[in-house]
Design a binder for these strands. Structure first.
Lengths: 253, 253
DNA sequence: AGGAGTCAAGAGCATTGCTCACATTTGTTG
DNA sequence: CAACAAATGTGAGCAATGCTCTTGACTCCT
């Protein structure tokens, strides 16, 4: 059984632990390469072992099984996507809510198109027989929705998120869910805008998935960039963001 | 090599051809069962052969390889989804555009939740190394978008699809794509509504995929039915459908 | 120095997709 | 009806895969 991977108990790492960590990193790196080259289901521990210059059974010292490696790659990919999104959002001033929304969506799409296999691992059909251990993946896996929601929340607190008129209130069971989410994430947006944020979230990934997975026909859209930009603009409006640039004062707090 | 599967040349089928077709149907049926039980990537020709009561190599007389069986299952699933959607839409009067839209979306979700593995085969990450032969799958694979678009087109021709106000026109490259689509599908809706229809399309499947693939957290939404109903209502408005009374226009600029 | 902990190697098992040579069934035709 | 040819089924076999187990070696700490 692989050892306790890392319980940072304060003690300085022994050379052995460092070597072990280095090997695990190598395995993840090689696994990532195989992933982008041959896809998730074709990920082979034996092939990784070959590239590592070691016999197949040796990798089981570091990685419990194929699922464990998939989990490591899942976390790795979630974090890379989260980093990209965070960087793209942070590159724009905090008051430019619409710009930041656009940057977030574009970053997701850019990363997905650049890493289709890893995107598929995150947002495609689940690998059969593989259940991601939520206690390890929810953290990295929720970075994008957290970024999106805090973005929308910031816009709301700045008075730049306009609730749509004529929209019926959400039904009580859904309101209960939304209330819990609002509390857990420390948000201020009201139910209707929160629900719309969730819809925008799923819609963003729906559009990206259709493009990455080739769900549009092969030659349906010759201008996918423009299509996505248009979708993103409509989604910004759907979320309640006013499309025009924020010329007024800075952040509220 | 599997024979010419079926070139309906008018001649009555010989008993042998009928037996052959029956065997292929059995293979597809067994494959479907394995698909729903163990997922797409775990689909095994040998297991199907075992269930068929025949030695493994015998199935290659009927199915060229594993990919071929996947293609058959793909077409099978596309058609079943298409049938469900068509039936749900046809159950409501043609003039009830909003109701039909709701029925379409609900039918997609219902089928997806009932057949998660097959839904994943259709709309999840592509099976690695497998390229669906477009000449055989585009027909069944476009039934839902055709149903959606003709529904929206009917509403537009009936004057029940209101273009949102304050929406900028689409850029020329995208307009060219939309024009071609409009021509190919014989539609009348203008660019803005057509683009919104595409967004509604991807958003619908985005919401369904999130739910089926467990992309929402495990216990994020205790009321998924209400969440989806809410999303569907918002998407209907986004498409331009007036729910009962004409909704307010787009956000003021 | 010695023992506990760690690691790599290689054999082995069950599984898969797929091919091939051979046997058997089946329908047609001389 | 008998012979032939096409269609179908059989079983062995190859190259992979994930994973386990035993064996030996190596490292580090007391």
């Amino acid at each position: 059984m692989p050892q306790t991977a890392s319980a940072p108990s304060g003690k300085p790492p022994t050379p052995r632990e460092r070597a072990r960590e280095r090997t695990i990193n190598d395995i993840v790196r090689l696994g990532r390469e195989h992933l982008v080259l041959h896809g998730a289901a074709a990920l082979s521990l034996r092939a990784v072992a070959r590239d590592l210059g070691v016999v197949s059974s040796a990798v089981y010292r570091y990685v419990e099984n194929r699922e464990e490696l998939l989990t490591l790659l899942l976390i790795d990919a979630y974090n890379e996507l989260g980093d990209e999104v965070d960087a793209a959002v942070a590159a724009l001033p905090e008051a430019d809510h619409a710009g930041r929304f656009n940057a977030l969506g574009s970053a997701v799409r850019r990363w997905a198109l650049h890493e289709p296999a890893r995107y598929g691992l995150l947002f495609g059909s689940p690998v059969p027989g593989y259940r991601a251990p939520t206690e390890r993946t929810t953290g990295p896996g929720t970075r994008v929705i957290h970024a999106l929601m805090s973005l929308l929340d910031g816009a709301y607190r700045a008075g730049r998120l306009v609730a749509p008129g004529g929209q019926a209130a959400v039904v009580p069971p859904l309101a209960a869910d939304l209330e819990r989410i609002r509390r857990d994430m420390g948000l201020a947006v009201p139910d209707i805008l929160l629900a719309r944020g969730a819809l925008v979230w799923t819609s963003l990934f729906g559009a990206v998935s259709f493009e990455v997975f080739g769900q549009y026909g092969a030659d349906t859209f010759a201008a996918p960039d423009e299509l996505f930009a248009h979708h993103l603009a409509v989604l910004a409006g759907l979320a309640g963001l006013s499309a025009s640039a924020p010329q007024d004062g800075g952040p509220a707090e």
